[in-house]
Simulated assay, not measured.
Amino acid sequence: MERFIRIGVVTAWPEEDWHSKRLLAACARRGEAVVIDPSAMAAGVGAEGVGVSLGTMRMEEVDAFVLARGLGREGDPDAQFEIYRAMEGAGAVVVNRIEPLLAAQDKFRSSWLLVRAGVPTPPAAVAQAPVGAEHALERLGESVVKPLAGSLGEGVERVRPDRAGRDRVRERAGRDGAVYLQAYVPHPGRDLRVFVVGGTTRAAMVRHAPPGEWRTNVGGGGRVEAVECPAAVRAVAEAAAAALELDYAGVDLVLGDEGPTVIEVNGNPSWQGILEATGLDMAEAIAEHVLARALRRRKTSDHIVRERTGATHG
C-alpha cells in the first residue's frame, strides 16, 4: 500500500499567523501536515553526506516542505538559511526555495534578474554613498525609493530630481548604508497583483490606492477587487515568477501605454487581499502544487530504487 504524503509547514507561528494556518489546513486535506519550527532544526555533516533533524523527525520522513515563515522566534537566521540549502542539496522538495526567496526579497537583485530574463520592469539603481544616490536620481528622473529588502510599502517614498529629492536620497543613503531607486511608472491610483503558482496564474486583483495616496498596499488602506487577467498580463507575471525561480509568487504590475510592467515580485506574498477580492484561497493552490511535486519526487525515487534492486538481483 502506498505511503501517505507528509508535508512539513515550516513556521514558528502555526497558531498566530493567518497564512500558516491556511497552509496547514490546505496541506492536511491532501495528506498529513506537520508543523516544523525553524529554530528547532539542526544539521550535521558526515561521511554519508548531510543529515537534517527537524526536532522530533528526520528530513527523510517528510515528503515536501513549505517555507511559510522560514525564520524562527529564536536561533540564527544564517544557520536556518544554510539548513534550507542543505535540505535542497540533499534533494528535498522545498517551496519556495531559499535562494529565490532571498532574490525576491532583494529589490536590486530582483530588478537585474527580471531584466536579464527580458521581463519588462522599470530602470533601477542601487547606491551606497550619498553622492551615488544623487547621481542615480539624476539618471532615473522621478523615482520610488525603497529599502533594499522589505515589504508592505514600509520605507517607500516618491522623489523628484529636484533639490528636495536629491537631499532626501542623500539622507537615505547616509542613514541606511545603501539606497534602492526605481524609476517611477505613472499609474492612475491603481495597479495589479497577480498570484502565480506552479508557473500558472491562479488569481488576480486590482488594488486601488486610498484617496490622496499613490501607494496601493492593502495594509495601507488600499481597496481590492477581482479582475479578469488579460493574456498579456498573465504572460508577463508568469515570466517574472520564472525569472526568480519561484514556485509561487505575488507579482505587482502597472498597466501603461506600452503594456504591463513588473514593479515588484513577492516570494512570500500575502493572499488575504486575493481571497477577499476573488474568494479564491491561494493556500489550496500552493498545497496542490506542493503535493504534485512531492508525488513526482516519490515516483522518481521509487523508480531509482527499483532499478538498483533489479540491477542487484540481476
Rank of each mutant, 00 (worst) to 15 (best):
G273M: 10
N268A: 14
G141F: 08
A209Q: 10
A242K: 15
R30Q: 13
R163Y: 02
V169D: 03
G118P: 10
P14C: 09
M59P: 06
G70M: 13
A183P: 05
G256P: 06
P260S: 09
V66E: 02
E32M: 08
P38Y: 08
M57R: 15
N217F: 00
R308S: 04
T121D: 09
S53H: 03
P161M: 12
G118T: 03
G259E: 10
A209R: 09
S53L: 08
V131D: 15
V194T: 03
R109W: 06
R207P: 00
D78T: 01
T261W: 08
T56P: 02
L295T: 13
T201L: 10
A42I: 01
E225K: 12
S301C: 05
R85N: 09
S151D: 07
D176W: 13
R97N: 10
Y184R: 13
V35S: 07
T121P: 09
G44Y: 04
S143V: 03
C229E: 02
G259D: 11
R73P: 01
A92T: 09
L137T: 06
V227G: 02
V262M: 13
A231W: 02
G55F: 06
V251W: 03
E307D: 11
A28I: 05
G212K: 09
T300F: 04
G153V: 07
L181P: 11
R293E: 14
I98D: 03
E258I: 00
G8S: 10
E171M: 13
A104P: 01
K21D: 04
G219D: 04
T11F: 01
M57P: 03
A47R: 15
R69L: 15
G222R: 13
D257N: 06
V131I: 14
F65Y: 07
F195T: 00
Q80H: 02
M282C: 12
G222Q: 12
M59L: 15
Q105F: 02
P269M: 08
T309L: 15
G141E: 06
V169W: 02
E154C: 01
M41I: 09
G91E: 05
W18A: 14
T216S: 06
D281R: 14
G91P: 00
H19T: 07
V159I: 12
R306E: 15
D281A: 07
V169T: 08
R73S: 13
R168P: 00
R202G: 01
A209L: 12
L246F: 01
I286Y: 03
L101H: 11
S301L: 15
A125V: 11
A311T: 09
V265Q: 09
I98P: 02
V236D: 00
G118K: 14
P260M: 08
W271N: 13
S20V: 07
D37I: 07
G219Y: 04
V290R: 13
E225F: 03
Q182I: 05
V236K: 04
R22W: 00
V10F: 05
E60N: 11
